[in-house]
Amino acid sequence: MITTAIFLLVLFVVTLTVAAYSTYGERKVAAFLQDRIGPNRAGPFGILQPLADGGKMFMKEDFVPATANRKLFFLGPAIAMTTALLTGVVIPWGGELTVFGTTLNLQGTDPEIGILYVFAMVSIGVYGIMLGGWASNNKFALLGAVRAAAQMVSYELGMGLSIVALVMLTGTLSLSGIVEHQIAHGWGIIQQPLGFLIFIVCAFAETNRAPFDMPECETELVGGYHTEFSSMKLGFFLFAEYTNMFISSAVIATLYFGGYHVPGLDKLGLDPNLATIIGVGAMFAKTFFFIFFFMWVRWSIPRFRFDQLMNLGWKTLIPLGIFNIVLTGSIYYLLK
């Protein structure tokens, strides 16, 4: 009980730190891709930039428009941030660690329906954006909120279908079960290349990241759903996006890249604790790669139009997802 509480606290701090440093990473990656230097004033290599940004967010005036619905205006960013932080609990960050005779499992909790829990949190997360956008009483914010809702509901379907095929192979909905299946039978990317492609496209849409960042598209909607937000309320919306990105990357690594699995590590005969720590390192390395991938795509590919986004979701990804299920089922049946 105590160990779980400590683990959750550590996870909370790590999630926030990674999210904060993703903002720094984003600016550095953008600078690199655009042949600039990026932030380099606060501390060596600008390493203190996230702290400076966070401090600035807190110091700014917290302005609420006179026509806004005050309660919902407050509730919006709170829901966005809370649901973003809740998802990390079910992700297996590593194997088992034995400290002073007690075994510590590096996963907050392992429910039988882990992957469904992730989906549930993602689907509640849209309320933060919707309520925040609507409560602002601003047409740009409302349009952003409506776009976010339509986009997230549409892409949840494609994402769900890509997971169905994976679950058919692994035979479990538990995230640790899926990782163990990959350790035994090879990584998910090899077994489900098409499913991975569908999943990662949907992950971009679910996190409102470019090229699918229509809800906050500044050329059309000023700032989209967070147009009227200022100070730490705006900070929470932006922070929730980076937290979601971190969690999505971790889920991608868990489902399709073996989670904390390092091929060939078990043959070296290392101390179990050392092997676990290397596994955690591998998990974070995979996660960071996908965070980088999110940024790489954002600064390389232009934004879609909204009708293109809807066409891609409903007319390409959903049929592809169903085809993937049929394909997986037939191959599984033929090989069995």
Binding site: A120, I124, M152
Partner: peptide, 13 residues
Amino acid sequence: TGAIMVLFLFVIM
């Protein structure tokens, strides 16, 4: 919660 109520909210908005 995640799909049907979002659509309700969508229509109201």
